[in-house]
Amino acid sequence: MVGLAVVSHSERAAEGIVEVAAEMAGDTRIEPVGGDGQGGIGTVPDAIGDAIDAADDGEGVVVLVDLGSAVMNADVAVELSDAEAVIADAPVLEGAVNAAVAATDPSATLDSVREQAEAARGMEKL
Protein backbone atom coordinates (compact mmCIF):
# COMPACT_ATOMS: atom_id res chain seq x y z
CA MET A 1 0.00 0.00 0.00
CA VAL A 2 1.00 3.60 -0.52
CA GLY A 3 3.12 4.94 2.35
CA LEU A 4 3.47 8.44 3.78
CA ALA A 5 6.41 10.51 4.99
CA VAL A 6 5.76 13.63 7.07
CA VAL A 7 8.56 16.21 6.94
CA SER A 8 8.71 19.13 9.35
CA HIS A 9 11.41 21.51 10.53
CA SER A 10 10.66 20.15 13.99
CA GLU A 11 11.08 16.44 14.70
CA ARG A 12 8.46 16.73 17.42
CA ALA A 13 6.01 18.44 15.09
CA ALA A 14 6.49 15.66 12.53
CA GLU A 15 5.91 13.03 15.22
CA GLY A 16 2.83 14.88 16.45
CA ILE A 17 1.35 15.15 12.98
CA VAL A 18 1.93 11.44 12.45
CA GLU A 19 0.25 10.78 15.79
CA VAL A 20 -2.85 12.66 14.61
CA ALA A 21 -2.89 11.13 11.12
CA ALA A 22 -2.26 7.59 12.40
CA GLU A 23 -5.63 7.58 14.17
CA MET A 24 -7.27 7.31 10.76
CA ALA A 25 -4.52 5.41 8.99
CA GLY A 26 -5.20 1.72 9.56
CA ASP A 27 -2.13 -0.21 8.44
CA THR A 28 -0.67 2.67 6.42
CA ARG A 29 3.01 3.24 7.07
CA ILE A 30 3.57 6.86 8.09
CA GLU A 31 7.11 7.95 8.89
CA PRO A 32 7.87 11.24 10.67
CA VAL A 33 11.14 13.02 9.94
CA GLY A 34 12.45 16.43 10.92
CA GLY A 35 15.14 18.47 12.60
CA ASP A 36 18.65 19.36 11.48
CA GLY A 37 20.16 16.13 12.77
CA GLN A 38 21.82 17.88 15.71
CA GLY A 39 18.78 18.51 17.86
CA GLY A 40 17.88 21.80 16.18
CA ILE A 41 15.22 23.05 13.80
CA GLY A 42 15.76 22.17 10.13
CA THR A 43 15.60 19.36 7.60
CA VAL A 44 18.20 17.04 6.05
CA PRO A 45 17.76 15.25 2.69
CA ASP A 46 19.43 11.98 3.81
CA ALA A 47 17.10 11.64 6.78
CA ILE A 48 14.08 12.36 4.56
CA GLY A 49 15.35 9.72 2.13
CA ASP A 50 15.54 7.19 4.98
CA ALA A 51 11.96 8.02 5.98
CA ILE A 52 10.78 7.54 2.38
CA ASP A 53 12.52 4.16 2.22
CA ALA A 54 10.97 3.13 5.54
CA ALA A 55 7.48 4.11 4.34
CA ASP A 56 7.80 2.35 0.98
CA ASP A 57 6.59 -1.20 0.46
CA GLY A 58 6.92 -0.96 -3.32
CA GLU A 59 3.78 1.03 -4.09
CA GLY A 60 5.31 4.43 -3.54
CA VAL A 61 5.29 7.19 -0.94
CA VAL A 62 3.45 10.50 -0.69
CA VAL A 63 5.60 13.10 1.08
CA LEU A 64 3.96 15.84 3.16
CA VAL A 65 6.12 18.88 3.92
CA ASP A 66 5.89 22.07 5.98
CA LEU A 67 7.88 25.13 4.80
CA GLY A 68 10.74 26.37 2.64
CA SER A 69 13.78 24.20 3.13
CA ALA A 70 11.61 21.20 4.03
CA VAL A 71 10.17 21.42 0.52
CA MET A 72 13.61 21.77 -1.08
CA ASN A 73 15.25 19.03 0.99
CA ALA A 74 12.31 16.71 0.33
CA ASP A 75 12.68 17.51 -3.36
CA VAL A 76 16.34 16.45 -3.22
CA ALA A 77 15.45 13.29 -1.28
CA VAL A 78 12.75 12.35 -3.81
CA GLU A 79 15.23 12.83 -6.66
CA LEU A 80 17.82 10.61 -5.01
CA SER A 81 15.41 7.94 -3.75
CA ASP A 82 14.97 4.57 -5.46
CA ALA A 83 11.39 4.51 -4.20
CA GLU A 84 8.62 6.07 -6.24
CA ALA A 85 7.91 9.18 -4.16
CA VAL A 86 5.95 12.37 -4.79
CA ILE A 87 5.57 15.56 -2.77
CA ALA A 88 1.97 16.64 -2.12
CA ASP A 89 1.40 20.38 -2.47
CA ALA A 90 -0.73 20.45 0.65
CA PRO A 91 -0.85 21.76 4.22
CA VAL A 92 1.22 19.30 6.20
CA LEU A 93 -1.22 18.24 8.92
CA GLU A 94 -4.50 18.33 7.03
CA GLY A 95 -2.80 16.78 4.02
CA ALA A 96 -1.36 13.98 6.14
CA VAL A 97 -4.78 13.16 7.63
CA ASN A 98 -6.42 13.16 4.18
CA ALA A 99 -3.64 11.05 2.69
CA ALA A 100 -3.75 8.57 5.57
CA VAL A 101 -7.46 8.01 5.01
CA ALA A 102 -7.01 7.80 1.23
CA ALA A 103 -4.22 5.25 1.58
CA THR A 104 -6.54 2.81 3.39
CA ASP A 105 -8.76 2.60 0.28
CA PRO A 106 -8.02 -0.82 -1.32
CA SER A 107 -7.91 0.79 -4.78
CA ALA A 108 -5.59 3.62 -3.66
CA THR A 109 -2.73 4.61 -5.95
CA LEU A 110 0.14 7.02 -5.49
CA ASP A 111 -1.78 9.59 -7.54
CA SER A 112 -5.09 9.13 -5.71
CA VAL A 113 -3.41 9.51 -2.31
CA ARG A 114 -1.57 12.61 -3.44
CA GLU A 115 -4.76 14.08 -4.88
CA GLN A 116 -6.58 13.54 -1.59
CA ALA A 117 -3.73 15.17 0.31
CA GLU A 118 -3.86 18.15 -2.05
CA ALA A 119 -7.63 18.40 -1.63
CA ALA A 120 -6.83 19.63 1.90
CA ARG A 121 -5.66 22.91 0.35
CA GLY A 122 -9.27 24.05 0.01
CA MET A 123 -10.38 22.91 3.43
CA GLU A 124 -12.45 25.53 5.20
CA LYS A 125 -12.66 25.58 8.95
CA LEU A 126 -15.26 28.24 9.62
Binding site: D36, T43, P45, S69, N73
Partner: peptide, 15 residues
Protein backbone atom coordinates in the same frame (compact mmCIF):
# COMPACT_ATOMS: atom_id res chain seq x y z
CA UNK B 1 26.66 20.76 2.50
CA UNK B 2 23.36 18.99 1.82
CA UNK B 3 23.93 16.61 4.73
CA UNK B 4 25.19 19.16 7.25
CA UNK B 5 23.48 22.50 6.64
CA UNK B 6 19.98 21.58 7.81
CA UNK B 7 18.25 24.48 6.04
CA UNK B 8 17.45 25.74 2.58
CA UNK B 9 21.12 26.57 1.99
CA UNK B 10 21.86 22.83 1.86
CA UNK B 11 19.92 22.07 -1.32
CA UNK B 12 20.51 25.55 -2.78
CA UNK B 13 24.26 25.95 -2.28
CA UNK B 14 25.12 22.22 -1.98
CA UNK B 15 22.60 20.45 -4.18
Amino acid sequence: LMAEVGGASGPLFGG
